[in-house]
Amino acid sequence: KSCSILVTDANFECNEENIMLQAMDNSHIALVSVEIGAPGFTSYRCDRTMPLGVDLTSLTKVLRCAKDENICTLKAADEADVLNLVYDAKSAFFSPFFFAFMWHGRDASSPFPPFFLLCSALLPLFIHLNISLSSQTPITSSWPETKYDTRVTLPSAEFTRIVRDLSQLGEHVRIEVSKEVVRISKLKAKSSAEDEDNDSIPTGVVIEMNQHVSLTFSLKYLVNFSKSGSLSGEVQLLMSNDVPLLVAYDFTQGYIRCYLAPKIGD
């Protein structure tokens, strides 16, 4: 869901170790990179590496029909052009679902017929899978290895609140990191004792800095990135003065990493 805010179509690169997704938004200002490792699934089998080109908007709609207690099984046969999702409804009764989803063989862009369906555990939900032949050039392969000048770790809820509040006030924000202070909305690391009594400074802000950094970013994108906040209790902001910002959410099964090109000139 947090990816579908940024990109509409993307390739899920499936191999025997994991499922990865890398995609840029249409304006090439942001890039999202997702990895979910095989151990993160109850069971996982991938007989051969294959790219699954999926319309994320449709996938999000279909996944919204699942309840927390459902177990979702994703299947794609060899040479398939359909991704098969089956929800194993634990409860005995069936609840009617109203949703639209792609019919097998329909083009991704055409509007889907609204469809009223009594969902049952046995009835597989098909969404049309556009296997996109041109998978995107993976461009983040070297950025994670980039040695960033600074890394700020803070509670993801705090980051979400800050960028949401600031986005009410303007379009962009300057993030400045020095030894003791991350100046987004004047966050300070809770490093020295005298900070203890100042409860306005949130706990759990850790600043690692090799070199002072000061960059300006679009708040619209930061707000979009913060939608991944529910996946992890904390978020890392990695910055250097000459590479895109990395907003990283790590979770048990893998990660979501969002890259954002800075704004330049004051």
Partner: peptide, 14 residues
Amino acid sequence: TPVQNDLSEYFSLL
């Protein structure tokens, strides 16, 4: 007003 860069500016870093 700051001007938005795009990611292609950074591909050369790879």
